[in-house]
Simulated assay, not measured.
Amino acid sequence: MPDGGGRSVLEGAFALLGAVERIEEAGLTRLAAECGLPKTTAYRLLEQLVELGAVERSRRGYRMGPRIFRLGQGWQPYPGLRAAGRAPARRLARITGASVGLNVLWEGQTLVLDWTPGEDGGVLGRTLDGRAWPWFTAAGKVLVAGAYPRLPLGPLPGSWRREAEAIRELGVAFDREDVAAGVCCVAVPVHGPHGAPSASLSVVTDPAHSLDRLVGVAQQTARTISAALRGR
Rank of each mutant, 00 (worst) to 15 (best):
V215K: 10
P193H: 02
R213M: 11
V204I: 15
A196V: 07
D212F: 14
T205F: 05
A196F: 03
Q220E: 15
Q220R: 14
A196C: 01
Q219M: 10
H209V: 14
G216E: 13
I225M: 09
V203L: 15
V215T: 12
A218G: 02
S226K: 01
A199K: 02
I225H: 02
L201Q: 04
H194E: 08
L211N: 14
A199F: 04
V217N: 05
D206G: 12
Q220N: 12
Q220H: 12
V217H: 06
D206L: 08
S210Q: 05
R213Q: 12
V203G: 08
H209T: 13
A208S: 13
A218M: 02
A222C: 05
A222E: 00
H209N: 12
S226G: 04
R213T: 13
Q220Y: 09
T205S: 11
S226N: 04
D206P: 01
S202P: 12
S210Y: 01
T221W: 00
S198P: 09
A208P: 04
G216Q: 10
P207M: 09
L214I: 12
S198M: 14
I225L: 10
V203D: 08
H209R: 15
H194W: 04
L214Y: 07
Q220D: 13
S226Y: 00
P207V: 09
S210M: 06
S226M: 03
R223N: 07
P193G: 01
V203E: 08
D206V: 09
I225Q: 01
T205W: 05
A218E: 01
D212A: 15
V203K: 07
D212H: 14
S200R: 00
Q220P: 04
A208I: 10
S202L: 12
L201V: 07
S200E: 02
D206Y: 08
S226D: 02
P197I: 03
T224C: 12
H194L: 04
A208V: 12
D206N: 11
A222T: 02
P207D: 08
T221Q: 02
G195V: 00
A208F: 11
A199L: 07
V203R: 06
S198H: 11
R213A: 14
A199E: 01
I225E: 02
G216C: 08
S202G: 14
P207W: 06
D212L: 15
S200D: 05
